[in-house]
Design a binder for these strands. Structure first.
Lengths: 224, 224
DNA sequence: GCAAAAGTGTTTAACATACACCCATGG
DNA sequence: CCATGGGTGTATGTTAAACACTTTTGC
C-alpha cells in the first residue's frame, strides 16, 4: 500500500481482496508477506490504493489479476472498513472484496514490493497486518452463508467434477458433514448441473460420473 | 457535499444514508433538495464527506442526527459506490448506509445548505442527484430481503403496536398480502414480542391487543 | 343492530431428515 | 477377492399454505 501523508484533508480509498480457493481438502486464502515497517514479516491481503481514474471494482480486479493472473472469476464487494486508525500510514478506508477461484492451475506471482505470496489455510493464519484478520473473518462468514443460498460454489469447482467432490467442497467450507443421499437429491433437484459423458479414472474403486454446471452465472437458490 | 478538487491523486470518501420509515400506509425515504448546480432542484440522500478524524460509520451517524435529530436507531452499511464519474465535483466514492426509524414524532431539520427536506414515497420518487436512485434501489432491495430473515422490523415500529399494524408493515415493505392467521401463528412462535396489558382504543370496532418487542436487538430469524 | 376490524384451528401439501446396503473398479 | 469410494430409496417428522366464521366495539 503506497504512502499517504496525513496532510490530506479527507480520507482516501484502498481496496483489499480476500481470495479464496479450496485445495487439498482445505479452504485457503491468498496472503502476501510485507516488507515495510511496522508490518515487515507480517502477512496481508492483496490490496492497494484506488487510482483516480479507475472504479473501486476495477481496482479490486487489478489486485486479483496482478497477484494471481486470473480474471473473470467471482468477485464481490464485501464490506468497507472505515475506522480512523486502521492504517498507520494515513487515513485510508478499505473497500474489501472477496474472490473465489478454482483450486487448479493457479500460478502465484510476486513483485519486488513484497517478500512472498502464499496460500494459507483459513484455520491456520499467520500474524496479519492492518485489520486484515477482521476482513478475513467477515469474508469467511459471508462465504459460508452465501454457499447456503446461492450457487457460488460453481466458482470454486473445476469444469468437471464428481458429486462427491462437490459435496466435499460444501463440507470443507461449512465445516459440517452432509448426508450423501440427501445432498445428491437436493443438488440434482436444483437443476444446476448436468452429467458429462465421462467417468473419473485411475482410482482403485468404482469410478464416479462427472458433472459440470449448466451455467456459471450467479443465482439465488435454496441450497442448505 | 463539499467541493473536492480533481487535483487529488486518490479518491476521497463520502457517506450517504437512505433513511426509511413507514408512515400513512407507505414506505418512505428521506430526501433533501439541492441548491447547487448541476443538481439544483433535484433531490438527494443526506450525505457528505467523511472527515479525517471520524470513522465512516460515525460520518453516517452524523448525517442521520443532523437531518432527523435521531440517534441510536438501526443503521447498517449498505454498499460502496465507486464508479469514476458518479460525482461531477471530483472523484468521490460513497459508502452508503441504510437507516430505519419508527414513523412517529420525527421532526425534520433543514440547513442553509439545502432548500428542503421531505419524506418521499418509495413508489413516487422525484428526480435524484448523483447515482442516488441506484443507491435507493439497492437499499430498498436489501430492506425487503432482510425483513424476511432478521427481526429488523422492530426498528420501524413504535413501542406498542397491534398485530395488524405489524402485519401491515410487512405487507407495505414486501408489497404482498399475508394471511392473517398464518402471520400471527408465525410471529408468536418466534417469541419476539409480548402482549402488553393494554388495548387499542377509540375505533368503531373491536379493540386490538397491544404488543411490544421483548428486546430490540438485531437477530437473525426465519420470518418469511 | 350494523359496520368494521380483531381474533381464532384444522387440513393438506411440500420439504427436510434419518438411515443401510449393493456396485464397479484397481491392485 | 478384497479394499475403497460410488451410487441409490423410503419412511417419518416438520413446516408452510390454504381457508371462514365468531367476537367486540362505536355509533
Amino acid at each position: 500500500m503506497a504512502k499517504v501523508e496525513k496532510k490530506y484533508k479527507y480520507a482516501v480509498i484502498a481496496s483489499d481482496v480476500a481470495i479464496f480457493t479450496v485445495k487439498d481438502g482445505e479452504l485457503k486464502v491468498l496472503l502476501i508477506e510485507m516488507k515495510k515497517k511496522p508490518f515487515s514479516g507480517m502477512w496481508a491481503l492483496p490490496g492497494g490504493l484506488v487510482e483516480v481514474k479507475e472504479s473501486v471494482d476495477r481496482a479490486a480486479e487489478r489486485q486479483l489479476l496482478v497477484k494471481t493472473g486470473v480474471k473473470n472469476v467471482y468477485l464481490e464487494q464485501l464490506y468497507t472498513f472505515g475506522e480512523v486508525n486502521r492504517d498507520p500510514f494515513g487515513r485510508v478506508v478499505s473497500v474489501a472484496y472477496f474472490a473465489l477461484i478454482p483450486g487448479d492451475n493457479i500460478k502465484l506471482k510476486t513483485t519486488k514490493e513484497y517478500a512472498d505470496v502464499k496460500w494459507y489455510n483459513i484455520s491456520d493464519l499467520p500474524k496479519l497486518a492492518y485489520d486484515h484478520r477482521k476482513i478475513i473473518d467477515v469474508a469467511y462468514h459471508r462465504l459460508q452463508s452465501k454457499l447456503g443460498y446461492t450457487n457460488i460454489v460453481y466458482s470454486l469447482m473445476p469444469r468437471e467434477f464428481s458429486l462427491t467432490e462437490l459435496q466435499e467442497t460444501y463440507e470443507i467450507i461449512k465445516g459440517t458433514n452432509l448426508d450423501k443421499r440427501n445432498f445428491r437429491k437436493k443438488v440434482l433437484s436444483l437443476d444446476l448441473i448436468k452429467k458429462v459423458d465421462k467417468m473419473a479414472r485411475g482410482s482403485a474403486h468404482r469410478p464416479a460420473s462427472l458433472y459440470s454446471f449448466k451455467n456459471r452465472k450467479y443465482k439465488v437458490i435454496q441450497m442448505l
